[in-house]
């Protein structure tokens, strides 16, 4: 193998796939590109990503997209109109409000819930797990015992009790869901930490005099992030469903907010004759949580090819 290959001009793809990246950026982009190729080969996962992007776009442009007001209806002339009525594509509810407009605006609440829960729960789990895994000993034992205790609880019922005590409302619902959803993240972060804790590069950093705080923050936690993202994505569907369930029981967003779960509850009275009032928001919930499940599956397969079973 004494031949040196001629420096031929590389295509962008070759540059990305190069076995010998010239820079850290190239290596990172190359890895991202490989992940993307695995991910995009999975059509269902791409569909999931499409749904989520659509959800974000709808939430951003809800004002422009919605043909009617989401909270003020036409009580006089447009109560309980069936889907396809003129000007009301998905029909109206008992207060003459356009269901489509309410769904479009409701996407903001859904997005709010999942973003806030992720922002609250994931860092808590990451911190607890990384500290627990890195410190070991009794710190680990105590933290994991607490995590296990929370894991052994019925999540939905506990969230119900929290909201019941704090009072109904979307903020309290978000807090309740976040409090009950961090333990799995702590578990994952701890497992990842344990695998990197004894690696040579951590030892090298320690030799260079880095404090435990810095090691955990800069060198351990970043290693946990990718598996955590997958898990959080997969959990999103569950979070949406829990939030909708709280809304359905009247404990989440309060009227007249167009929260999808609460909309189902409001449409329940008319289910026999005006089926669309309760059906439409359910479809919205189903589509969005399906989107997150597909995306999460695809991410897991792309980031961790071992589990994909290919």
């Amino acid at each position: 193998m004494s031949e040196i290959s001629h420096p031929a001009p590389m295509s962008r793809r070759e540059w990305l796939m190069s076995d010998r990246p010239q820079s850290r950026l190239q290596a990172r982009l190359g890895r991202a590109y490989m992940t993307w190729r695995r991910f995009s080969a999975n059509r269902l996962a791409v569909a999931g990503l499409g749904i989520i992007l659509l959800l974000i776009l709808v939430a951003v442009f809800a004002d422009a997209l919605a043909p009617h007001s989401p909270v003020i209806g036409n009580l006089a002339g447009a109560r309980l109109l069936p889907p396809g009525s003129e000007g009301y594509l998905l029909g109206t509810d008992d207060q003459g409000r356009d269901i489509l407009s309410r769904l479009l605006h409701g996407s903001r609440l859904t997005l709010l819930v999942i973003v806030l829960v992720a922002i609250i729960a994931a860092p808590i789990g990451l911190l607890v797990g990384a500290v627990s895994g890195y410190a070991g000993g009794w710190v680990d034992a105590v933290l994991m015992r607490i995590t296990d205790i929370f894991l052994a609880f019925p999540k939905l019922v506990l969230a119900l009790a929290f909201v019941a005590a704090m009072g109904p409302g979307i903020q309290n619902a978000i807090i309740a869901i976040a409090i009950t959803s961090w333990p799995p993240y702590a578990r994952i972060a701890r497992a990842e930490t344990l695998t990197v804790r004894n690696s040579d590069y951590i030892a090298a950093v320690r030799l260079m005099g880095a404090s435990p705080f810095r090691i955990v923050l800069r060198h351990v936690m970043p290693m946990c992030v990718s598996s955590l993202i997958v898990r959080v994505t997969l959990d999103m569907a569950g979070i949406i469903l829990t939030a909708a369930g709280l809304g359905f029981l009247g404990l989440g967003a309060q009227p007249p907010l167009p929260e999808w779960g609460a909309m189902i509850a409001a449409g329940r009275r008319f289910i026999l004759d005006q089926w669309w009032v309760a059906t439409m928001p359910g479809i919205a919930i189903l589509v969005v949580s399906l989107g997150f499940n597909l995306l999460g599956d695809g991410l897991r397969d792309a980031l961790d090819p071992r589990e994909s079973g290919q």
């Binding site: 469903l241 369930g245 779960g261 189902i264 329940r268 919930i285």
Partner: peptide, 12 residues
């Protein structure tokens, strides 16, 4: 099954 709200499916 993972994605559908159970109370909604129950109603339908």
């Amino acid at each position: 099954g993972y994605s559908v709200p159970i109370f909604w499916l129950a109603l339908l």
